[in-house]
Design a binder for these strands. Sequence first.
RNA 1: GCUCCCUUCGUCUAGCGGUCAGGACGCUGGCCUCUCACGCCGGUAACAGGGGUUCGAAUCCCCUAGGGAGCGCCA
Length: 472
Amino acid sequence: MTVRTRFAPSPTGYLHVGGARTALFCFLFARKHGGQFVLRIEDTDLERSTTESVNAIMEGMTWLGLDYDEGPFFQTQRFERYQAVIDELLDKGLAYRCNCSKERLDRLRDTQMAAKVKPRYDGHCRARAVDPNAPHVIRFSNPVDGVVVVDDMIRGRVAFANAELDDLILRRSDGSPTYNLSVVVDDADMGITHVIRGDDHLNNTPRQINILKALGQTPPRYAHVPMILGADGARLSKRHGAVSVVAYRDLGYLPEALLNYLVRLGWSHGDQEVFSLEEMIELFDLEAVNKAASSFNTDKLDWLNQHYIQHSDPLRIARLLSPHMGHLGIDPTEGPDLAEVVSAQAARAKTLTELAAISAFCYEDFAEYDADSAKKHLRPVAREPLARLRAELDMLALQDWQQETLHHVVERVASDLGLNLGKVAQPLRVAIVGRAASPGIDITLQLVGKPATMRRIDRALAFIDARAAAVN
RNA sequence: GCUCCCUUCGUCUAGCGGUCAGGACGCUGGCCUCUCACGCCGGUAACAGGGGUUCGAAUCCCCUAGGGAGCGCCA
């Protein structure tokens, strides 16, 4: 039997991190076992489903690289099939028509709540002859006694008494099927062997098993994964910043970083923290999935993102970084090779947006000095080293404007003046970067280029003079 | 209210009867060093509480507390 899993979101919003992790687990499990992963859109709620949501979900999955083997299937295109199954259930006496009024149902519920029992339908219409031509819903005849056992691959054996379950609605009065019916029919029709989903569905599982049994189907294996909570331990919501997967892309996160972070949220393989997609596929195991909910922690995501920025091919990072430079109004083709900038800066940024921000100085003059840095390094004592550097650097031919040569020039100026390298490099750094943090001074000079370096040193000298004049 | 699920450092987790309760992020001390980072070395910090079972419990059982989910003509 080949493994088949499915991710079945309802298109009522974007793909959020919780859904993405569920999709990832489904994807990994299928891949690991050489099976298929299918995408199914559960759009039976005509009111709330939108095509924008469908697109947003697929965009998220594409970005993460969660390729599906089949689908997307849309439940709205399978209504005749659901109808046939409902008719079959009706014929076999396993479902019945119900025309209980909203008022009766509300009253029933109030009575039950008052009696401190679980509110549920009382089966009033089970044995009644309801006019098929008047408005009605179709309910499932749930077994009245016995227990349903869910042998969950993550939570273990969970038993539910049938007495706790009621006769749920399979078809609405407008003729559309409800979730519990369509899910069951699709999972069976699509040959799904393993249903991996959020644990908010655990309570639905016994009902679905009962329907499956009524249909003469063998239930699939189930695996209910715990929820993902916000950093404050509360349920994930917009309040927690970016919850949409593509929002993380826009914030400058790499898909492999988010995937790596997500796979470790609830799953582990000993002490290993970093997993390539290949390793995830090889090592993923439902038995190792945690039972408890976990909260989303941006610090760790940042750490992973930094790790991947630093250890990935600079050419690829440069390609992904380019649009972020664009958002800053910078055209990275006009200036140093972006991949070289990435190589120099990769260890300094947690996100691509941050990487773009700290690399802007390679392409355009900074607006103003960082106040503290200028105050500390652009002082009168720095005038001589800077003037000397300007003279020495000016003598370099353009083809000699290379890291190694530049390094020697800075070193020579320092030793000629009897100063530590830091006394020379720091003022120079502030002069050309605008602040006291950048890659090594030599590579920084190389990336900025000669014209801009000369220009910015002059600007620093003028700044020092102006400041001295102001003091006097 | 009823049913079901969950509970190890602040966070993610290892542990599956005998460990000084391990790792990672964060925070923090130091090293490296032209700055900032990176890297390296060290530190901080947890078994929700109470009963059992056992020679021995983070590990098994029960209770309590806390958290979550479901109880829709939503999915």
